[in-house]
């Protein structure tokens, strides 16, 4: 009898726990939906001039303008497409170079100084990721002028955060034994780095770089919007001259490039891992 009482007590307790959890979930959802309603009110109802959009017909009419493809633009798209691709490649490689010291500073086990360089490295990682690529591009355009260079630099700066973060984590998680073995047979710091650390982090880092390169193709396609060349510039010009068919052509070119990058990165990743 006694054991049965205890069981009933436990069941009751579990029921109370489940009820409490359901109440908590309901409260969370209520808060989320109240917040959502506030956002909806602020953006869709207060801020939008529905009469100006002109109902479904107006929207469909503006959409229809994009469907008349402008094939005469085709020859002008080849060079910007190649440029966009190249900017992404060079930007990624430059980003890798910038990431090297940042990852070195920001990995707790190899950082030269825990109190100065470690926080500095971590800060650079966060800074690089929290500034949008468009803002990086604006900064570099105002510093080095128009052309492909600000685009390359913006992409490099934006890539640093992710690449160096993953690299630093990989360095922190290495197996210490090879490092100690090389030290024990008299290897210097460079040899420890090259033979002890590098082979261990190299697959992870390479996979990350390929992933970042794939994203960078997308990014380099918009660098032209703020004056840094490539497909973005063509897009901007077509949009400003209201040639909507041309805009669609540029978007198709971007899609083609992205699919190419996606396929390439798939095979590269297979080759690396």
């Amino acid at each position: 009898m006694a054991s049965l009482d205890i069981d009933i007590g436990r069941v009751e307790g579990q029921r109370a726990l489940v009820r409490q959890r359901h109440l908590k979930m309901a409260a969370i959802w209520a808060v989320v939906f109240a917040f959502l309603a506030w956002c909806f009110h602020g953006t869709i109802i207060q801020d939008t001039d529905w009469s100006r959009i002109g109902g479904a017909n107006g929207v469909l009419g503006s959409l229809g303008r994009f469907l008349a493809l402008d094939f005469s633009l085709l020859p002008e798209l080849v060079i910007p497409t190649i440029e966009t691709f190249m900017v992404a490649c060079v930007g990624t490689v430059l980003g890798c170079f910038f990431s090297l010291p940042v990852a070195w500073f920001g990995a707790a086990n190899v950082t030269p100084n825990r109190f100065f360089f470690y926080p500095a490295g971590r800060f650079l990682m966060v800074l690089s990721r929290s500034v949008h690529e468009i803002i990086w591009a604006l900064i570099f355009v105002s510093a080095v002028g128009l052309g492909a260079l600000p685009g390359i630099l913006a992409i490099a700066m934006r890539s640093v955060g992710f690449i160096s973060k993953i690299t630093a984590e990989a360095i922190e998680n290495i197996d210490k034994k090879p490092v100690e073995a090389i030290r024990a047979v008299g290897g210097n710091d460079f040899q420890v780095m090259y033979y002890g650390i590098l082979p261990q982090i190299y697959p992870v880092v390479l996979a990350t770089v390929i992933f970042e390169w794939d994203i960078n193709i997308r990014r380099s396609a918009v660098m032209g919007l703020v004056g840094a060349g490539g497909l973005g510039l063509t897009f901007f010009r077509q949009m400003n001259s209201f040639n909507y068919g041309g805009v669609t052509m540029v978007i198709l070119a971007i899609l083609l490039l992205i699919v190419l990058g996606e396929v390439l990165s798939h095979f590269l990743r297979k080759a690396v891992i």
Binding site: G42, T43, I44, D47, T48, D49, R52, I53, V59, S62, L63, F66, I134, R218, R219, A221, V222, L225, F235, M239, Y244, V247, I251, I254, L255, I258, V259
Partner: peptide
């Protein structure tokens, strides 16, 4: 939707729906 960068989506939607938060 992943391939097109968010800024290009913005420009496209602005040209269809007009300026603003929508």
């Amino acid at each position: 939707s992943r391939a097109i960068h968010e800024t290009i989506w913005t420009i496209l939607f602005v040209s269809i729906l007009g300026f603003g938060m929508l």
